[in-house]
Design a protein around this nucleic acid. Structure first.
Lengths: 350, 350
DNA sequence: CTGAAAGCGCTTACAG
DNA sequence: CTGAAAGCGCTTACAG
């Protein structure tokens, strides 16, 4: 049988109120502190999180809802979120939709059932039903990677447009005109943003976009492989290719190698999100990097901030407008990516 | 303010005991059932998991402790575990050691602090300290992928030896004598097992192992790439290569393509755990597949089984030998892998 | 089948 | 700084 605060109080010859105060960071006189600490040690006492939660109305757990666990981007982000949250003693419940967007509502329902204190969500589609569920439950919601129409929630996004534009511009400057781009699914936010960047670069350069060089994929390794093959089988293949996520970058490189093409001799190439590949691929790739770690960190911090705000408002008088937290304007954090300088881009003779 | 069981009882004109009984699957007369259901619907009532947990002494959450979130094997397994557990309304707390085995104890402490009902653990090293912590806390522990010395816990393992032996035998039968093998870290269980299988195949074939063809890696994409390069730069390179996990398989293929080698013309190849690559790589690879999904499923089921056993013993009289669950003999589930038939192995003329 | 009551292990005003 | 007491929202014998 695990020890309770009662046992500790008895052993320390104090009331449970005093022990509780100590546990929660309050001041007790030194002699008592020592006695409590000793009792806790001897009894191997741990706070019962459920009893505490019943009083505080907090589970100290947060839900993370993502499209799939099989995307490096998601996992790296989650790792950062978990790290940040566990520092504040929050646990992380991860739910993935296993690539099936229609699972999203079911998974959100599960998280709400589990009474998480907040949710960090990377939307699986443009449906905002799941997001609304969180909002209706009255808990803070943070959107990452993709915003949602009509959902007023804090969000952490990457400036994909500028990042893709920079990558494309780099290629255009080297004299490439037909630049293949391996995109994600056509209707997804990041795809649109990255493609916009691609277009903008062309426009700024006063060059005509070769629309047959735009290839959509499912953001998978396989998808990248196939897109690359398709691009290179055009009657007039591109002289450069830009992949737009980690998996398609790997897939494209596999296909490039497979086809016996050399980078940058036969084909210039810009990858995406594959920092760990830099030591591996020769020559070193020029790559567009998202600050994945930072995304997770910021999302966790935003959420923690909302929870603190909620706490404060609870102990104060409640406003007729809802909790104070609701009154903090929604924040949209837009993070900048960066382009590494590799040597995978060949200058074209014009 | 969320509705409580009291509100439901009031609205349904019943006692909370009756409502509680209904909620927990007990029988109530039809008219009352209808009234309760209606009240629950109208109030959007949800059971407060903490109040319930305080009584039942169960959090209905389980911890999963893995070495790193950046291994496809881990993620696929977790996805299966989560799926299985959520069916029984258990939530899954995932902790990864971020590749640093020394984090394992800290993460286990976190899970225990959160009072998970059980832990599924894939050991990060041969240290059994973390495992002992779970045992000391009196909760069921399931080991997956790797056993631990002196830890009597249920485990779910794959028969790696037989699987690697089958793969190597296939290569030997095709007439290959110098078979490169890309292993994981030298001191890890799966590495040892897979390497044993490799040796056994040679022994059964009465062939001398070419020990310079054995290359250890860190099981990463980069590691696979480098191992392949190293093997092919031997004065007498292998004529066939066997990779022993997903990441090294991808890395090796990248290096093979990069070197302009053809499979199986220039090099025969057997991959590991990359079912999703089969449609991608041409020719189709011969691959050694672990039943990843099944591993997760079995682990979850074993754990659920232990929890049920614990439940029963709690309501009965407790044995002087501890709970009944302790008396169920430890189970070791050994799953078989399988070898796919691809066309990535060339027959050697002898 | 139903209900009154105790109690799970905490936190939190409120006195002192 | 410390303690007595109420109460968070449930479940669970125990009567009826």
């Amino acid at each position: 049988m695990a020890a309770t605060i009662k046992d500790v109080a008895r052993m320390a010859n104090l009331s449970i109120a005093t022990v509780s105060k100590y546990i929660n960071g309050g001041h007790v006189i030194d002699a008592n502190r020592v006695a409590i600490e000793e009792a806790i040690r001897q009894l191997d006492y741990r706070v019962n999180t459920m009893a505490r939660g019943l009083k505080t109305r907090r589970t100290k757990s947060i839900g993370v809802l993502i499209p799939s666990v099989r995307m490096i981007f998601c996992m790296d982000m989650i790792s950062a979120i978990e790290d940040e949250l566990s520092r504040e003693d929050f646990s992380t419940l991860i739910c993935d939709c296993q690539g099936r967007p229609e699972q999203e509502e079911r998974k959100m329902a599960f998280l709400l059932e589990k009474q998480v204190d907040g949710v960090i969500m990377m939307p699986s589609s443009s449906s905002s039903v799941a997001a609304r569920m969180a909002l209706a439950a009255g808990i803070p919601l943070i959107l990452v990677d993709r915003p949602l129409p009509d959902i007023a929630a804090d969000s952490v996004l990457v400036d994909n447009m500028t990042l893709a534009k920079a990558a494309t511009t780099e290629l255009l400057r080297a004299g490439h005109q037909r630049i293949g781009v391996i995109c994600g699914p056509e209707d997804i936010y990041t795809t649109k943003q990255r493609l916009s960047g691609y277009y903008e670069a062309y426009e700024a350069d006063n060059t005509q976009v070769a629309s047959d060089c735009i290839s959509f994929s499912d953001y998978s390794l396989e998808g990248g492989y196939k897109s690359l093959e398709k691009l290179m089988s055009l009657t007039e293949p591109p002289t450069a290719v830009l992949a737009t996520n980690y998996e398609t970058t790997i897939g494209a490189i596999m296909a490039i190698n497979r086809a016996g093409l050399r980078i940058p001799g036969d084909l210039s190439f810009v990858g995406f999100d594959g920092l760990d590949m830099s030591t591996l691929i020769k020559p070193e790739l020029t790559m567009a990097l998202q600050p994945v770690q930072q995304i997770g960190e910021q999302a966790a911090k935003l959420l923690l901030g909302r929870l603190t705000a909620n706490n404060k408002s609870d102990s104060g008088k409640s406003s007729i407008y809802g909790s104070d937290a609701d009154m903090i304007p929604k924040r949209e954090i837009m993070l900048a990516g960066k382009l590494t300088q590799g040597s995978s881009i060949a200058k074209m003779k014009i």
